[in-house]
Amino acid sequence: MWFTSLCFTFAAKKTHHNSRPFSPIISMNFPPNSINMNQDLQDSVNFCQQVRRDIVRMVHAVNSGHPGGSLGCTEFFVALYRHVMTYDAKNFDMDGKGEDLFFLSNGHISPVYYSVLARCGFFPVEELKTFRKINSRLQGHPTTHEGLPGIRIASGSLGQGLSVAIGAALAKKRNADKKLVFSLHGDGELQEGQIWEAAMYAGSNKVDNLIATIDANGRQIDGNTEDVLDLGNIGEKFAAFGWEVVTIAAGNDLPTVVNVLKQAIDLSGRGKPVCIVMRTEMGAGVDFMMGSHKWHGVAPNDEQLESALAQLPETMGDY
């Protein structure tokens, strides 16, 4: 099977603290080559490609924004919103009673978030053209302030989303709502102390209806995470704080991501919060954006846009 060899629990895989876990081989997953892919998954692979087009077009249009992490997390968002979470996009409300909830903690990857929300029906796809422009609901970083459906918390200032997700998970428990809370965090974001306050709380208090994913791309604005401030072994750290830890070795392979998210759901409700350490490639899908931290927050110029779009043929129609 395509997934069993690619996912494993933390206990089965321990890397040395100082090893370099972010192998460039991940960048070889384009185009995705998983076998036994059913039509639904194939549709989602095409969906990912359109989302990637949206991302590079959105940041190019305003010459600002964060394409690198957005491209790297495309499979995660598409997996989450097309294969994992239950939600009602047409009747969005803040409480999301009876729905799974998602909180984006590393808000700078708003392009991928907005594209997937729009293409999953939360708001018109045409609205993507307002990204980062005056009077838009699509602010540079996501916010509830402008009333954009799909957003339940403002994020951008890093390190805050895990606490919020814990609060929402506690609210779900209080309200006898069996649905789950998902969150996404950058690996560089783990340098913020509040993350570890939150990790300690969730482990100690058995917040087991929470699945937090770490986008482990090994990069941050100033360089590689291990050079800026080495995170050590992320999985071991969360495990030490009382979390169940699952690893996605190929976070840009859609079937793998879908499967591990489903595996994480199976691990929920057993007395531990679940952490997914998901290895991705920053800039995935656009050759010249991969293998470096330099495209964290830089927009492509006209020529670069053309080159990027040539690598990502239209699949669902541009906005």
Binding site: M94, D95, G96, K97, L101, F103, R152, I153, G159, Q160, G161, L162, S163, V164, A165, I166, G167, A168, A169, L170, A171, K172, R174, N175, D177, G193, Q194, E197, A198, M200, Y201
Partner: peptide
């Protein structure tokens, strides 16, 4: 009642999340 320990930043975030569902 939620005892969060000596972690005020986390407390504020949890409080924000707890508003889900009208708390």
């Amino acid at each position: 009642f939620y005892q969060v320990g000596i972690a005020e930043a986390n407390m504020m975030g949890i409080a924000a999340g707890l508003t889900i569902g009208g708390n």
